[in-house]
Amino acid sequence: MTTETINIKKSRSAYDDAKRRFLANRAAVAALFILITIIILAICAPIFSKYGFDEIDWNAFSAPPSLASGHLFGTDTSGRDLFVRTMVGARLSMSLALLATFVALLIGVTYGAIAGLLGGYVDQLMMRIVDVLYALPFMFIVILLTVIFGKHIWLIFMGVGAVEWLTMARIVRSQTMALKEREFIEAAHAIGASKSRILIRHIIPNLLGIVIVYATLTVPQVIMAESFLSFLGLGVQEPLTSWGVLIKEGATEIETSKWLLIYPGLFLATTLFSLNYIGDGLRDAFDPRGRE
């Protein structure tokens, strides 16, 4: 009975520690709040707004932001409400980022864990392949993907995930190799725990922290990739909208309607800003080397 309570406490304490450290990091917590606010806005605002994202307000073409008309961020050249469009764009930008990150996570963790666990020649070969792929220019491969997949935006971003897994694989591999040598794994061996039990109970839970950290840092990279592509006209296409599409429209209309660039740009930058701070905060919280 007593041993059991101690066990439970110990297996939770690593994460409690991380949580405590994360919450002590004020910048990261603030960033988390900002991000949650943006997500809630993105989900709810289009539902409650009186304007649809592709609805034309015939009384307001290129109208500046105003409270009176209800166009908080103004309207674009076709008279569509920019606030709703920014929020709908946020949905697409973030969903694509989550999709790509999920794909990257799946490939990266599997690949890295296999290389790390097996070691030897298999590991050597697998990591050489990663080295070769690392030398490829990421954004250019993504542009290549758009040429191949054309207008199938979801396929393009599954492809983005399939090229973004390299860092994840490297980190998971080195972490797995380090874990293999640790005393508690040896101890688990000594008391006769099976290989699969060690993998599931000891290795994977200890990888989780670092995986979450790098997933958090992958999301802003993909959001950036999405806006980059859409800005160049290679990514999301009308009638769909995303932050990149809105920024592109804003950049062409900047002389007459500054708000078309400023608001989507602000939301994009704030989101990237928050995700980077959260990622840094999580890394400090989870990174074992960071412990004093």
Partner: peptide, 12 residues
């Protein structure tokens, strides 16, 4: 801020 604001926002 310099890192978070993409250059296609800054440039225009």
């Amino acid at each position: 801020i310099g890192i978070a604001v993409p250059n296609f926002v800054v440039a225009p």
